[in-house]
């Protein structure tokens, strides 16, 4: 049996082992490569920088725990960015499974760093079913859709919400999503209420949202862990996304090497000729 025949029939467990090593090795031997900034990430950063200090913003946790690795660095960095500008932050989620809990944990952890107080500097509205109605309804009154916050405290008892009625008082929305809810934020909230909006999404969803950046409906876009790493670099808060770049680099290179190897064996063994005949 030739080398190429052996390569063709390689046990998939060897592939799994190689991927496993590619994931583990960069954590043991970290190597830092320069991370270039794409225009889409720069645009998002610049748009947030241009917001007036102490304005009100929304950070939307529309992702499941399965994509924490890609999405959480975005929300964390955004919170650092907003609180450096002393913004008031409203968090909410259209994801029933974990969104409000992740918002609660992440915001409270970063709030401690900046001495922010719940109810005065940030509020977690939690989750409400039927996101189309939620997004549209908040355009008239946030309190009518979310009468209480995530812990059940009436919004009327939360000082920060005294002056916030609907989207008119919200200067910016940062939507972090691993699903199609970002489409609805664009078509309902940006298109109908004109609120400036930025988006962070998983790498697999990012190509779709270039269309909304092109149309100006998103002021910028963070695509996957690379986008999150770029944003961390811009904000100057290197975190898990920058560390994750080493892992992602090796896994991408491994997959590319495997694809090249597979194609060489495909042609060397003449399978393309058999297919044609």
């Amino acid at each position: 049996m030739s080398f190429w025949e052996k390569a063709e029939q390689i046990d998939r467990r060897w592939v799994y082992l190689m991927v496993g090593l590619a994931v583990i090795v960069p954590f043991i031997v970290p190597a830092e490569f320069p991370i270039s900034i794409t225009p889409e990430s720069r645009m998002l950063y610049d748009a947030i920088e241009e917001l007036p200090d102490s304005c009100t913003v929304m950070v939307v946790f529309d992702y499941y725990p399965s994509t924490i690795a890609e999405c959480e660095p975005m929300t964390r960095t955004a919170l650092h960015h907003f609180w450096r500008k002393d913004c008031k932050v409203i968090t909410l989620s259209n994801i029933p499974l974990g969104g409000p809990s992740m918002a609660e944990s992440v915001t409270r952890e970063i709030a401690r760093e900046y001495g922010k107080v719940y109810g005065e500097d940030f509020v977690n509205l939690g989750y409400k079913a039927n996101y189309v109605a939620v997004l549209s309804g908040m355009g008239t009154s946030i309190e009518s859709i979310f009468p209480t916050d995530n812990s059940g405290t009436p919004l009327s008892e939360i000082p920060m919400m005294d002056s916030i009625v609907n989207y008119e008082q919200v200067s910016f929305i940062f939507e972090v999503a691993d699903n199609a809810t970002a489409d609805y934020w664009v078509s309902i909230v940006n298109a109908q209420y004109g609120v400036p909006m930025g988006c962070g999404t998983t790498a697999v969803s990012a190509p779709k949202y270039y269309a909304f950046v092109g149309s100006g409906q998103f002021v910028g876009l963070l695509g996957g862990m690379k986008g999150a790493a770029e944003y961390e670099m811009l904000v100057g808060k290197k975190g898990k996304a920058v560390i994750g770049m080493g892992v992602q680099s090796l896994v991408h290179l491994l997959i590319i090497a495997l694809v090249i190897l597979g194609n060489i064996s495909y042609f060397v063994l003449g399978k393309h000729k058999r297919r044609l005949s």
Partner: peptide, 24 residues
């Protein structure tokens, strides 16, 4: 819940690598 969901999603990397090698 959170680690289990992340683990399920992370296993995709292994399957993608194997599938890319055989089918791409």
């Amino acid at each position: 819940d959170s680690p289990m969901m992340a683990t399920m999603f992370a296993t995709l990397a292994f399957y993608i690598a194997s599938a890319a090698y055989r089918a791409f």
